[in-house]
Write a protein that binds this DNA or RNA. Structure first.
Lengths: 205, 205
DNA sequence: GGGGTGACTATATTACGATATGGTCACTCG
DNA sequence: CGAGTGACCATATCGTAATATAGTCACCCC
């Protein structure tokens, strides 16, 4: 269920091709095992039994491969977030769970799949398109929840929707953006709770 | 008026000594001119006409010297913040101005006194005590403003004071902490406005 | 013509000896 | 005794030559 083709970087050659798939698979393994920097394009070539030059028929650069892996990673997070909020009964609860799920997914990636996390952090400092798309997705989710809460009467309706969504996103950003999350991991747990409460207070009708 | 001895790092030898003052003066000049890393302790020694070893009679480490400079720097910011909020008529306005003043002071330091900013950023990633003290100061200011607003009836009174203050601090942190501000400079201007509004909405009675 | 490659270049990275720097200490001198 | 220091050590940093890597291109072969 994490096959969301959400954040697509620029490609080269046919989009749907067996060799492309092989490259992505090999890259996923190598990057998560040895890290992005330590994996060379030649390594990937050897792994799939083709020459390095052939890889460049499918991807314009090493970074382009990294972006695909990064996209997958972020898509997985978004899926986890989607699941976490799916069975919440109120918009408030949905918002709380969303924040908590994002931080949990980010922290898990950091602690359990550090090498991939580093790619995401590099992507965020780029910033690579995949991360920008990810941020947009999250903003979108926030907006949906606000609309829902406004419709049900849970949330106030005076503040412009855009501004509310943007401000909430700004509050969450330090824990969403992989580059910033690094510096905030120690606070993350209590921060989600307290900041969720603050956000909800600001949304009170 | 920026002689607030607010954030005092550990010292060695007599606290009030002419040579100590000379060291700090020389360090301020050298650090802000050449940067913390590029300035050697020997440089400072030469500048004041003593040997390097003598400097270590007054400071336990090069970092200890950096901390003093950093403290001065942060004290200056706190003073600027104090002035900015002094003539606000309401607690709301005070909070808005405080946030704006912090970001302005931080950005100014970044753009105009980059070398000193880098020390502050290094201090924040330490984290050196001076930065922790600075953060405490800001939290304190926030608390004062909240208390004031609660007394005047501007702000709600249900949420525990500590939690409110802490949550607001968490919202401001990305723009207060020099280490984080770097990554947020482009957003800082609009962020202060939108986040101040969000905070004030959350404080509404 | 399209799948596939070896050989090439310019730039990035490494390895490592030479140098510089933070920090200490026994010591001198007045 | 206390202001002040040169000599010293361990580690960090730098300069640089050697190597590795990202990326391209002309070309091959089915």
């Amino acid at each position: 269920m994490n096959k969301t083709p959400s954040f697509v970087p620029q490609e080269r050659g046919p989009s749907d091709h067996d060799v492309r798939t092989q490259i992505v698979k090999a890259a996923t393994e190598h990057f998560s095992h040895f890290g992005y920097e330590k994996t060379t394009v030649s390594d990937l070539a050897k792994a799939i039994g083709f020459s390095k030059a052939y890889i460049y028929k499918f991807f314009g650069s090493k970074q382009a491969i990294g972006e695909v892996i990064c996209s997958d990673c972020l898509s997985t997070i978004m899926t986890a977030v989607g699941e976490a909020i799916s069975d919440a009964s109120t918009a408030s609860e949905r918002l709380r769970r969303m924040f908590r799920a994002i931080v949990k997914a980010g922290s898990d990636l950091f602690f359990h799949d550090r090498k991939l996390y580093d790619i995401a952090a590099a992507a965020a400092s780029g910033p690579w398109p995949s991360v920008q798309a990810y941020e947009e997705h999250i903003k979108q989710r926030i907006t949906e929840i606000i609309v829902e809460g406004r419709d049900s009467g849970e949330f106030e309706r005076k503040t412009p929707l855009d501004e509310t969504a943007n401000a909430i996103y700004l509050v969450m950003r330090p824990y969403v953006d992989p580059l910033l999350l690094q510096h905030n991991l120690d606070l993350a747990a209590e921060a989600t709770a307290q900041l969720s409460s603050l956000i909800l207070r600001s949304l009170a009708p």
